[in-house]
Write a protein that binds this DNA or RNA. Structure first.
Lengths: 333, 333
DNA sequence: CTGAAAGCGCTAACAA
DNA sequence: TTGTTAGCGCTTTCAG
């Protein structure tokens, strides 16, 4: 900037003003400065500008990871949500700082705000860290979490209406004639817990008591799912449908069943949750509960930005939609 | 920081030194400062620090988008690569700034470096922008791109050995008895072009001349693939196998064929490229050419950081591996 | 319309 | 061992 000033024969203040389009500066000078800047391939140092202005247009998006499994970022749904956040942020003129932090020391996430690197934080997945998140919110960190809305929640969350989603899927399976529906997913996770609650609700409404043996608390990991399905099969516990906690689990279940000689949907109906892009192209095409991904990104970003604008944190429940495909069509249909 | 200094009864320089663990400062003072900092919930302002130090530990990861389709970030393979870069960067202590830029004004990407926001740039996908990328490299922007290695390339690239991958898949299909293998993918894209070259090579080596009608230049979009497959079928052009430019295309092809009453692998063999996680769980499990995702992230990051360390840009060709699954098993096998 | 000067939060000589 | 001072690159009063 000093160089430009020298070359243009003006002061740095003038250059600064010219570059920021201030009306105070002579059009001719403005022109000259602009050209010089271009020819020198110059652009403003955002760091210095932020320092001076105490502003910042960066949002940190954090994906917690389990330090033991050191598991990689791979669930297509989470990945897709990141994509949609990236889009929403770009639209609003914000940058996205993507980072992974150890789930056990989630407070690290707050550092992105504390150190002035980001104006706020979007956290993907609340897992078991409800309390830590409340702490952060209490400390005044602008925060939005993708997950379930829990009672006693101080931070804002955005998520689909998991309980209704769970009901929709289960009610559909029951309507298709299923009577012994296995549930696959870890109900300790708030979102999955609500989906399970929906599962129970739907049963109750139908006047059916689900067999507790059909509740398989698997983690969202391939091996865990395969093991659970194989064991259920080996134990000879009869079941005529599966409601999986995510599409990935549903797909793994389907292929595991097939390897055991059990066909979907002829022998067992399978429904998932998420409606990832591939669900429609799976064989059989997967019935699932859609979580609106594009809206999710927008809602997360809106929620964060409105907090920054001084409004009170306002959680959002996104509508779910049951997408019926062949994986739950009884062959007679 | 000034507050801490006042409270601790020392100067800011001492605080600065204490916080940075300088050996010059008295252990007692250091202790006191550390406690104060913790209790005030203070942490260093990275922006100011960077400004002063002229350093920076963030890397910009850029995904170009086509402004017309304004297409969202959704290909699982790209998403997975982003995940793996995030991991690699986290391991090396770098932050990742994720952004999407209009593919037509790719130079914008250079701004992240120009404005001091990032030390270097990782670009996902070179598409048709070889020249622009060379320009950027020429201007001295530290840059790595995921894509093919082209002649006359100044920037560094990391990618799988697309031609060999194409050969592997095609040779496998030929070995399985296929004689009329359709190729689906836009050969204008450097990576796909090389895969196609591999396809041609394998044919030549087998002494077979592929029918030009079997070359379907589809974009990597669902609709495009469906349309192409339907048209091929409608025109009555016979084919006994498909080599798809990506797993997503292969899966779409499979489900489109199925809707036309053509079964995989009984009537037509299908092979893909990428080996995304779902490929193994697809039905039928998909034969594909694996691009090593974890290594990809590491290689991209290494390549960029070594440039920053002053070494010459060094492109990397990652090995591919043919993963044979049921989608290419002739039923008699 | 333009320039001089102060200062954003931090670090690094240089002195003491 | 610690404090003083200058300055990273920028913006913005306050005077001209």
């Amino acid at each position: 900037m000093a160089d430009i000033a020298r070359l243009a024969g003006v002061s740095v203040s003038t250059v600064s003003r010219a570059l920021s389009g201030s009306p105070l500066v002579n059009a001719a000078t403005k022109q000259r400065v602009a050209e010089l800047a271009r020819s020198l391939n110059y652009s403003i140092n955002v760091g210095a500008q932020n320092l001076r202005l105490k502003q910042n247009r960066t949002v940190a998006v954090i994906v917690p990871f389990d330090p033991e499994t050191r598991q990689h970022l791979s669930d297509p749904f989470f990945l897709a949500i990141i994509g949609s956040i990236a889009d929403a942020l770009t639209d609003r003129g914000y940058d996205m700082l993507l980072s992974r932090v150890d789930a056990n020391t989630l407070d690290q996430a707050a550092q992105f705000h504390g150190t002035g690197r980001a104006v706020g934080i979007i956290l993907i997945g609340q897992w078991h860290h409800h309390d830590q998140l409340n702490q952060m919110a209490l400390r005044g960190v602008p925060l939005v979490v993708w997950g379930a809305q829990l009672s006693g929640q101080i931070y804002a969350s955005v998520g689909s209406h998991n309980q209704i989603g769970g009901e929709q899927a289960t009610a559909h399976l029951l309507a298709q004639g299923a009577r012994r529906i296995a549930f696959l997913g870890d109900p300790e996770l708030p979102e999955v817990g609500l989906r399970y609650a929906g599962y129970l609700n739907a049963h109750e409404r139908a006047g059916i008591t689900p067999d507790p043996q059909l509740m398989l608390p698997v983690a969202f990991v391939r091996e865990s799912v395969q093991a659970a399905v194989r064991e259920l099969h080996a134990r000879g516990v009869p079941f005529d449908a599966v409601f999986a906690g995510s599409d990935l689990v549903a797909m793994t279940t389907t292929s595991t069943l097939r390897s055991l000689g059990v066909n979907v949907p002829e022998d067992v109906l399978v429904a998932g949750y998420d409606d990832i892009e591939l669900a429609a192209h799976f064989h059989p095409p997967l019935t699932t509960v859609r979580q609106p991904i594009v809206e999710a990104g927008e809602a997360l970003v809106n929620c964060l930005l409105s907090q920054l604008a001084g409004e009170r944190p306002q959680s959002v429940l996104l509508p779910t939609e049951l997408v019926v495909r062949e994986s739950t069509q009884t062959t007679t249909a």
